[in-house]
């Protein structure tokens, strides 16, 4: 049965390949389907071919034009996208540079505005007159001139610590206290107190020598405290500007004085 089925299948395959005698009884069927075209099947050739020719002639031209337009559109799109991308990325890069967002990347730790110039000029002169006679209290003349120019604004700070007589003070602390409680120099009150604290008024001559030694120690503190020099809460009684230029901007704060003992040295470093 299976062999008969396979034989019949092979015969059908040969019949379908074009052998009409492969399947007995289907010769007429095959001959009829594969016969030559009849006249009825070839009617209307002229009409159909004319319509086809018209459709073909119109179509390629439109396709070529469409392709050309598409090419132009692609070029235009590419140009527009390139321009837009340049604007977007260029603007983002400019904004990042202006706000300093790229400083960690570019390695710019500090950034100063191009149109801002900061000039700090300090001159501190301390004259200590040791009395030749032992009864008189030591006389100290302090003259400070501080010129600070920040962003085109120049502030000149004069000496405000001379209102309280040094002779009236029993010792150095009394002198500084007197200066601190003196309300005459309101504008430079903190600076005057600072200068009074740094002065040698009411001190013994040995204390003055010790202060000079302390000044050497303060150099050491400059080296050690450089990392915390920017911590300027300024509520204390001294605003240490020994190693910090930015602290010059905080002169008007609540601090009671500015310590400028090493400003000369800082001037040299700044130069």
């Amino acid at each position: 049965m299976t062999e008969d089925f396979d034989t019949q299948g092979a015969a059908f395959d040969r019949f379908l390949e074009g052998d009409p005698t492969a399947v007995p009884g289907l010769e007429a069927f095959d001959r009829a389907l594969r016969s030559q075209a009849t006249a009825a099947e070839l009617v209307g050739e002229h009409t159909v071919v004319t319509l086809m020719s018209a459709a073909i002639v119109v179509q390629p031209a439109s396709l070529l034009d469409r392709g050309h337009i598409m090419l132009n559109k692609l070029k235009t799109r590419a140009a527009v996208l390139t321009f837009a991308g340049t604007l977007v990325f260029g603007g983002a890069a400019y904004a990042a540079t202006a706000t300093g967002a790229l400083d960690p990347i570019l390695g710019n730790d500090t950034k100063a505005p191009a149109d801002t110039t900061t000039t700090v000029g300090d001159t501190t002169t301390t004259a200590v007159a040791t009395p030749t006679t032992g009864d008189a209290a030591p006389t100290t003349t302090t003259s400070d001139t501080t010129d600070t120019t920040v962003a085109g604004v120049t502030t000149t700070t004069g000496d405000g610590g001379g209102d309280t007589e040094c002779d009236d003070a029993a010792n150095h602390g009394d002198y500084v206290s007197g200066v601190a409680h003196d309300k005459d120099g309101e504008s430079n009150h903190g600076k005057a107190v600072s200068e009074a604290a740094k002065s040698d008024c009411g001190k013994e001559s040995d204390d003055v020598d010790d202060d000079s030694d302390d000044s050497d120690d303060s150099d050491d503190s400059d080296d050690e405290g450089s990392g915390s020099s920017n911590n300027n809460s300024n509520h204390g009684h001294g605003n240490d500007t020994r190693n910090n230029e930015g602290n010059q901007q905080n002169n008007g704060n609540h601090g009671h004085g500015n310590d400028k003992r090493n400003n000369e040295g800082n001037q040299q470093n700044n130069d």
């Binding site: 075209a37 099947e41 070839l42 050739e45 071919v49 004319t50 086809m52 020719s53 390629p60």
Partner: peptide, 15 residues
Amino acid sequence: GDRNALGTIWRALNP
């Protein structure tokens, strides 16, 4: 768009 070629194709395949 050659009409003769189109006619040849049509005659070969239309039946």
